[in-house]
């Protein structure tokens, strides 16, 4: 199965919509609850990062009976130093975003902790691609 979702940069009222749809789908597929929980954390953080830090993006979801691959491709400023961005506490979030309680610099570490496999590539001035892979059999 293949699904796509659009993400609008800066639009926090829609943040989490795709993650919620993915959660519902995995529940219908009877995926193990612990795996659904980890998928939800990783996907939500990736989705919010597009809203908070990029201009627009698309989520491509591919799921079969063994795995789910969630790929987020955004157009945005990109990440100059991915290793630095992965450090807990590192954030360039705007003050508006921080006031909402985002910008703790914990999103990428949460993704790393919860995804079975996480790939990030980025080009400064163009955008960022994040790929989250989860296996259903442990």
């Amino acid at each position: 199965m293949h699904f796509e979702y659009q993400i609008e940069g800066g639009n926090f009222t829609r943040a989490g919509f795709a993650s919620s749809e993915i959660k519902k789908m995995l529940k219908q597929l009877n995926v193990d609850l612990a795996i659904i929980k980890r998928t939800v954390v990783a996907t939500y953080e990736a989705e919010v990062n597009v809203v908070a830090h990029a201009y627009s993006g698309t989520i491509y979801v591919d799921v079969d009976e063994k795995k789910i691959i969630i790929k987020l491709v955004d157009e945005g400023p990109g990440i100059p130093d991915i290793e630095q961005a992965m450090k807990e506490g590192y954030s360039t979030a705007s003050s508006r975003v921080r006031e909402m309680g985002f910008g703790a610099g914990m999103g990428l570490p949460n993704m790393k902790k919860n995804a079975d496999d996480l790939k990030i590539s980025s080009e400064v001035g163009k955008g960022t691609t994040v790929e989250i892979r989860m296996r259903f059999s442990s």
């Binding site: 929980k37 954390v41 309680g101 703790a104």
Partner: peptide, 18 residues
């Protein structure tokens, strides 16, 4: 009050104070 702290550390069935 940090949303990704809650995302990463809260658990099913808990009450969230914020």
């Amino acid at each position: 009050d940090l949303l990704s702290d809650v995302m990463g550390n809260a658990d099913t069935g808990q009450i969230w104070i914020t």
